[in-house]
């Protein structure tokens, strides 16, 4: 198994998760990276991704896992980077004993919302202690409600912007919804922010593991 850690930055963040998966598959073909086929009636290359990134959100850390054992991690990294659109370049490749299953194990992500929030530092950071915080949003034409309080791990205002660690996967909280809810609370105008997924995290009880730390037990 190879675990490719890659970015998704710039305009390519407007390419949906499903389309990105096709981009990745095609990259493997161009790069001549062999991927084992699944067994069964309709064999297809065995690949896994981490949690889908919402449209328009950039990322410094995405994972793409492929069933390949016949190349070194370095060879895969080079071949991949020569064949991927520049917005999705890989930063690292790990040789692993098995699929780390990011989609199941990663349960939080850290996002940076770029902008100057310093003057609201107190008001924003206190929001992470809310016991209940119900938001309404439009989902495919119907209005939905979600209590986001239990899904927020932390909110922190720094120089570059707002750093938030929120639930990802199941249950899932979309970063843009949090920002929009904060704007509502503080009566700020709604607008589109630059949001970047900066880290994928595995949090159990009070133990926080970064994706790299979590990966250690899988690395060959």
């Amino acid at each position: 198994m190879k675990v490719i850690e890659h970015i998704k930055k710039g305009n390519i963040s407007y390419v949906s998760h499903i389309d990105s998966m096709r981009v990745l598959q095609r990259t493997l073909i161009r790069a001549n990276i062999n991927v084992k086929l699944s067994e069964g009636f309709n064999p297809h290359p065995v690949t896994y991704t981490s949690h889908p990134l919402p449209l328009g959100v950039e990322s410094e850390q995405e994972f793409f896992v492929i069933a390949n054992d016949d190349m070194s991690a370095e060879q895969v990294l080079n071949a991949f980077n020569n064949n991927i659109p520049s917005g999705m370049l890989a930063v690292k490749c790990y040789d692993c004993i098995k699929n780390p299953n990011f989609a199941k194990n990663v349960n939080y992500c850290e996002y940076l919302v770029k902008g100057n929030f310093l003057q609201y530092k107190k008001e924003i950071e206190i929001l992470q202690n809310e016991k209940s915080w119900v938001i309404k949003f439009d989902f495919k034409g119907t209005e939905k409600e979600q209590d986001i309080a239990p899904l927020i791990h932390s909110l922190k205002v720094v120089n570059k912007g707002l750093v938030m660690i929120i639930a990802t996967g199941n249950p899932n909280l979309r970063p843009d919804r949090v920002v929009s809810a904060i704007c509502d609370k503080l009566v700020l105008p709604q607008k589109a922010f630059n949001i970047v997924r900066t880290k994928q995290l595995v949090i159990n009880n009070d133990k926080i593991l970064t994706a790299e730390e979590f990966l250690q037990e899988y690395i060959k």
Binding site: N11, V15, S16, L55, D176, A192
Partner: peptide
């Protein structure tokens, strides 16, 4: 950025294809 998030298939408008 705001309007790209409102329209269908924003990737139509932003390029970034391989071999560009």
């Amino acid at each position: 950025k705001e309007i790209l998030l409102k329209v269908e298939k924003p990737a139509r408008y932003v390029g970034g294809e391989f071999n560009m």
